[in-house]
Nucleic acid binder design. Structure first.
Lengths: 280, 280
DNA sequence: CGTCGCCAAGTGGTTTAGCCAGTAAGTGGT
DNA sequence: ACCACTTACTGGCTAAACCACTTGGCGACG
């Protein structure tokens, strides 16, 4: 009962998009080949050709697929054409396979850290007094939300948002949106934020102080070490909760291309059918 | 003749997407309100309701719009829900208005710089010998392409790609994709890369040396200053070419929200109809 | 008089059937 | 052997229609 918040009513087109994307990311539809014809694929997925087309339209926008008029719909290499948002889908797929997307999560956290470090550095130069005050005020509010997970997470997002905004750089703000969206998409990310609340909030307060000091270099350096510690603890903690061994992330990263979606059992493509076919 | 490579045949759904998105980004459809009904909007845009729906489906995926079943299609705030890819569309809109999207371009370059700095830092720790060799080989090739703009740009992208790959972090790789895509989307970005070829290539070579040294801190620091110089020169150069004054970017950035799409003449919303309506 | 329940109109969601426009490969000619 | 044409696919798009859901008003009931 408590575990079905939104699964009952999904739109058919979303379903179709997810299934096709899963087929591509999972290697069922190999890069460089053509998808089945629209008429065939639509019956396969059990939707009308038109909703199938709407789905394909979205996949095209995501850079996963490129329809060629009289010919067919080619499958593109998401590692070349995919954007950040693809990360969420990749991680979700791994999760659906029953695993915790450790490698991806680690990568994602590293990216967030990198961005956060620079956000702090830039914000330390450009943040206004008004924004500083507002941020301080909001931090107090966030600290008061530790009882309500829902509210705390929302407040935490808002904090990240305000920080990004303080850079006065729209590109960074939008990027921050993207990253947060991907992170939020992960199941179990709620407790992500609930693990080290005390530490997190005290970290935020230190950061605020760094911004006040308006010392970009110090802000960057401090943020880097602070967040690194936080993220490391987070990964360890998740590892504990799931009961699996690998808190060691820096080691497993092989040559890049192969490390993609899986480390699962079988059937999960990506690993095998990649480079050979793609280039030719 | 030489200036119409792909404009003749665009798909109707793409056209619809662009027009609606322009309407939203331009403030014609205000945040928080509902879009016109699908039946009405489809006739307005001169497409069938079905292609209109495909378009809406994409806009939904972009986070610009949220259809509510029996009710209507609400316009969301792209500053909250939009991702990185939105940057390209925003800049394109400004360009269509006849202006050069200076502020956005500056923001975008800063973002790229930030990412590049960290890419270098991380790559300096994790790049393999094989990747180093491959990178060196590719740089030689790129240097040989200075005659052919098309090929040079392609090679330059590939260089960025290889660097991102050297981080062995998929999130960063995909982010790099996103950024490159947005940059490429800009008209006139071809000559972006053609302006300081000598400088650019010598910069790359220095970077390669830094990677070889495997000194993350030095790599970061050097990359930061090198790229900052390069980007500054680029903006100045564009300013010259277009004949407008503002190479001074750090100054004009006001409180954030308002600086969005425009600085154009009139009719261009965003500036006015924002916060008041959005929250309430 | 207030409130509840029902019904009708409008919305997005989806389907069926069909036509148009490209591509590619087979098939005939030369 | 080569070239043009035909044909049988492909995706692109439209039309009309129905379903599912929300909303708001209207009327019956308490």
């Amino acid at each position: 009962m408590t575990e079905s918040p939104a699964p009952p009513k999904r739109k058919a087109v979303d379903e179709a998009v997810d299934r096709i994307r899963a087929g591509i990311l999972g290697g069922e539809y190999r890069v460089g080949t053509d998808l089945p014809g629209e008429r065939e694929l639509s019956t396969t997925l059990g939707v009308s050709r038109l909703t199938l087309r709407a789905a394909l339209s979205r996949l095209e926008a995501e850079g996963l697929v490129k329809p060629v008029h009289g010919s067919g719909t080619r499958v593109l290499d998401y590692r070349e054409h995919g954007g950040v948002e693809m990360l969420g889908h990749m991680a979700t797929l791994v999760q659906l396979g029953g695993e915790v997307p450790f490698a991806l999560l680690a990568d994602l956290l590293e990216l967030r850290r990198v961005v956060a470090v620079e956000v702090m550095g830039i914000a330390a130069e450009r943040i206004t007094e008004a924004e500083l005050d507002e941020l301080a005020r909001h931090l107090v509010y966030q600290a008061s939300c530790t009882g309500d997970a829902q509210k705390y997470v929302a407040a935490d997002i808002e904090t990240a948002r305000k920080l990004a905004q303080a850079t006065h750089n729209q590109a960074i703000l939008l990027l921050s949106n993207s990253i947060m969206r991907v992170l939020m998409q992960q199941r179990g990310m709620e407790f992500t934020f609930l693990i080290d609340i005390e530490k997190a909030i005290s970290t935020y307060k230190k950061m605020l102080g760094l911004l006040r000091a308006r010392d970009p270099l110090a802000a960057r350096k401090a943020t880097r070490t602070l967040l690194a510690r936080l993220d490391r603890r987070l990964l360890e903690r998740i590892a504990e909760l799931v009961g699996v061994p690998p808190p060691k992330v820096d080691e497993g990263r092989a040559r890049g291309a192969a490390t993609t979606t899986t480390t699962t059992k079988a059937t999960n493509g990506v690993k095998k059918g990649s480079d050979g076919e793609a280039r030719s």
